[in-house]
């Protein structure tokens, strides 16, 4: 094979661009939950497919990093595999599917079930960064509302839910108050994962490529899901265990298994599921051995 015709800069983006993104990230970290505008660049994938997340990852990744990419909770979807391959190629970074071995995790929806630790970075791909968008379409006005801490409107949305459904029906992108100051959209993350954002030891970075916004939650920051005194936030719950690994208290996906509408419920976090199942098998074989012995 001949040498590649184009030599990409490390991390694909040029150094100037990475600096621009890093500056936005630093500002985001300094003002937790505040949406920082940035000059979103072209990356080799369509907008809306995680270009914001990719630019954030590209700006923080180095050859010594280990990257995990999940789409929903899975490491093996097309998008996740492509992004992982992309950074292996342009950043020389190692990749993994194991949460506990990753230094950077890029995600579209889920926060892994395995608790994150210090020095890990969780990068969210965000489609709509403005939590007030659906109620107030004018960007000039929503920015003013954030600046002046006028969040009555956000509660109107929650009020409407309770009036209509008897409870707050929102199960994803559930608005949070960060560090007691800015109301923030957690992107399409299920509300099940909201509590994991609170006081997380990991750094959480959010990139919205099409919308040209970056925001962040530094480690150990208060993240409070909004609610009323008499209708507080309640994360989604699943009453059953995963049918593959038997875990309880995890986020389950409904998987259609036949043409007759049969379905099973299994962990959406594939890495967690595989390792839990594996541990159980090992445990069982140890038990069996002990019994035999």
């Amino acid at each position: 094979m001949s040498a590649p015709r184009i030599v990409y800069n490390e991390g694909y983006l040029d150094e100037q661009t990475k600096r621009v993104v890093r500056r936005a990230l630093l500002k985001g970290v300094a003002i937790p939950g505040f949406q920082v505008p940035f000059a979103s660049r072209e990356v080799p994938m369509p907008r809306g497919w995680g270009t914001g997340g990719v630019q954030v990852t590209a700006s923080v990744i180095g050859p010594e990093d280990t990257l995990k990419v999940i789409d929903q909770g899975a490491d093996d979807t097309t998008n996740a595999v492509s992004i992982r391959a992309f950074f292996e190629k342009v950043a020389g970074a190692a990749s993994t599917t194991r949460t506990d071995q990753a230094t950077i995790i890029q995600t579209r929806h889920r926060i892994p079930e395995t608790p994150l630790v210090e020095n890990q970075i969780l990068v969210y791909q965000v489609p709509i960064p403005e939590p007030l968008r659906m109620l107030e379409p004018r960007e000039t006005e929503t920015r003013r509302l954030h600046a002046l801490e006028e969040y009555g409107l956000m509660y109107v949305k929650l009020y409407e839910d309770i009036a209509k459904y008897g409870h707050i029906a929102r199960t994803y992108d559930y608005p949070v108050l960060v560090n007691g100051r800015y109301v923030m959209a957690p992107s399409p993350t299920p509300s099940f994962d909201n509590p994991k954002m609170h006081q997380s030891p990991a750094l959480q970075l959010f990139g919205a490529g099409r919308e040209k916004r970056i925001y962040a939650i530094p480690p150990y920051t208060d993240v409070e899901s909004l609610g009323f005194e008499d209708y507080p936030f309640e994360p989604q719950r699943f009453d059953r265990p995963c049918e593959i690994c038997g875990s309880t208290g995890v986020y389950l996906d409904e998987i259609i298994i036949d043409d007759r509408g049969g379905a099973m419920f299994a962990c959406s976090d594939t890495d967690y599921c595989e390792r839990t199942a594996q541990q159980r098998t090992e445990q069982q074989s140890t038990d069996t051995k002990e019994v035999t012995a």
Partner: peptide, 13 residues
């Protein structure tokens, strides 16, 4: 209800 919520009312009932 919005003006109430804008003024910090946080009790749905």
């Amino acid at each position: 209800g919005e003006p109430l919520m804008a003024n910090g009312w946080r009790h749905y009932g």
